[in-house]
């Protein structure tokens, strides 16, 4: 991180005790840093002296009037009749059935049309996964974007690469490719497992984001573990915490 970020973190009180001691020592040694620090300090002093303007008296009287009206109105309560609820439910049921039928139909016709083409793509993908170069393997993973419905072989290849590839850049690409199929149970299970094994921060954040967007409840335990772990960077804990909020809808 650059110097300015460090200065800002210090002035914002975002450093741990050890970090700020270390920073203060650096300040003493480094005249350039010290000068930069002084300009920020001057600016922060100004910012912290923001002067308040007074609103006019009408703001208060308008609010009082608003509240009075609401208090009067709230005494008349409204009720939702049983008949209303029944109508809404019926419409919703019809809609849901419609969507389900439609989905099924489009998927079936899609699969039968390009099956042989798929087989070719899968073998190409597997072949390229053995590439020596990182960008070559990432390119191989991109092939999966051409599958609109999940192919077992494709998912297996992606999961294998997310678990085992030595390059975090490739693992990240695998997580993102799998994200397209995040509705599949096999993918979700693999994500949750990887959550407790992954060491690279970026890949971890990607995993946390997908799992929380999909509201995968099985991820709650490992996420909680991350937020409490000692050896995990603060920004990952933040993301994990945010993930928990999204899943649990706090």
């Amino acid at each position: 991180m650059n110097k300015e970020n460090k200065i800002i973190d210090y002035l914002e009180g975002q450093m741990s005790f050890e970090e700020s001691i270390k920073f203060e020592q650096e300040l003493k040694k480094d005249p350039v840093l010290k000068e930069e620090f002084a300009t920020y300090q001057l600016m922060y002093n100004e910012v912290d002296q923001i002067k308040l303007e007074k609103p006019s008296i009408t703001l208060k009287s308008n609010f009082d009037h608003l509240l009075e009206t609401e208090i009067k109105n709230s005494r008349k309560t409204k009720t939702l009749t049983f008949r209303n609820i029944r109508n809404v439910a019926a419409v919703a049921a019809i809609l849901v059935i419609g969507i389900l039928v439609g989905q099924n139909w489009t998927q079936r016709s899609f699969i039968s049309k390009i099956d042989s083409h798929n087989a070719e793509l899968v073998s190409e993908m597997k072949r390229n996964m053995n590439s020596e170069s990182v960008s070559g393997r990432i390119e191989a993973l991109q092939v999966s974007h051409q599958f609109k419905s999940p192919e077992n072989e494709v998912l297996k290849t992606l999961i294998k690469s997310m678990k085992n590839d030595e390059s975090p850049n490739v693992r990240l690409a695998a997580v993102e490719a799998l994200d397209n199929f995040a509705k599949e149970e096999i993918v979700r299970t693999a994500f949750v497992k990887q959550l407790s094994q992954e060491k690279d921060p970026f890949v971890l954040i990607a995993l946390i984001n997908t799992l929380s967007e999909q509201k995968v409840e099985k991820a709650i335990d490992p996420l909680q573990h991350i937020t409490n772990a000692n050896d995990v960077a603060k920004f990952i804990k933040d993301e994990a915490h945010m993930g928990l909020i999204k899943i649990e809808k706090i």
């Binding site: 800002i8 973190d9 300009t39 600016m43 933040d238 945010m242």
Partner: peptide, 19 residues
């Protein structure tokens, strides 16, 4: 509606811009 880490990064940018 974002993560704490994102706020931190935003603050970095904001204070640099302000300066």
């Amino acid at each position: 509606n974002c993560s704490e880490g994102a706020i931190k990064a935003k603050i970095h940018r904001t204070m640099k811009n302000l300066k």
